[in-house]
């Protein structure tokens, strides 16, 4: 008899594209019941790493995997499990060889720059910039930006944030995005960084 807790690829995808509780539930499932984590840890241990490194690779793979699914990068050429291991193996391969700086986005991750110090410097600068922005954004705005990026409706954002109506959620989202823009545009170093990126065509 099939385990009722088992999830098909479609169900996993739908949950990642769904509401916050659906996402939380599928992360619990992927961590606890899918068997994917054990396989990643096993691979890392066999390939010169240890269990904590394996756990770390699983975590970072899950982040990349989630973003790729949400941004429609997975084309369905394989099962989700195969796709997940593909990312995990590449991540571990690159990390062992110290190919790239920490925590790149999926796009840059797919094509790591190993021979362009200027781009690597820009990436490091950008990470520092993001950390700085996160420090100044309030907790409320951080949550709003996170939910907005997850493509939740105003109604769902209102529900998650405990706001009285979808209109309030819309207002909050607008305010937080404006706060973000105003902060960045008020910082000369950040504007310069954006302009440099423009000239690099990225």
């Amino acid at each position: 008899m099939k385990n009722p807790a088992g999830r098909t690829d479609e169900q996993i995808t739908q949950a990642l594209l769904g509401s916050v509780p659906q996402r939380e539930a599928v992360f619990v499932y992927l961590y606890r019941a899918s068997g994917w984590r054990e396989r990643v840890v096993q691979h890392v241990c066999r390939d010169g790493g240890d269990a904590p490194a394996g756990e770390d690779v699983f975590q970072e793979t899950l982040i990349l995997f989630d973003r790729n699914i949400r941004e429609g990068r997975f084309r369905g050429d394989s099962s989700l499990q195969t796709y997940f291991f593909g990312i995990a193996k590449q991540y571990w391969f690159n990390r062992r060889r110290n190919i790239r700086p920490e925590s790149l986005t999926p796009a840059t991750y797919s094509h790591p720059d190993t021979d362009n110090p200027e781009k690597i410097t820009l990436l490091i600068e950008r990470q520092q910039m993001i950390s700085h922005i996160l420090e100044v954004l309030g907790e409320h705005c951080k949550k709003v930006l996170e939910l907005y990026k997850l493509s939740l409706s105003n109604e769902e954002i209102a529900l998650e944030m405990g706001l009285s109506s979808p209109e309030m959620a819309k207002k909050y989202t607008y305010r937080c995005r404006e706060k973000f823009r105003t902060f960045v545009l008020g910082r000369k170093d950040m504007v310069e960084h954006l302009d440099i990126r423009l000239h690099h065509g990225k």
């Binding site: 925590s103 993001i130 930006l145 990026k149 973000f180």
Partner: peptide, 15 residues
């Protein structure tokens, strides 16, 4: 570029 930065900040939060 501004929007890309907002994307990256939001993704850092999700991560």
């Amino acid at each position: 570029e501004m929007r890309r930065l907002e994307f990256d900040v939001s993704e850092a939060l999700i991560a």
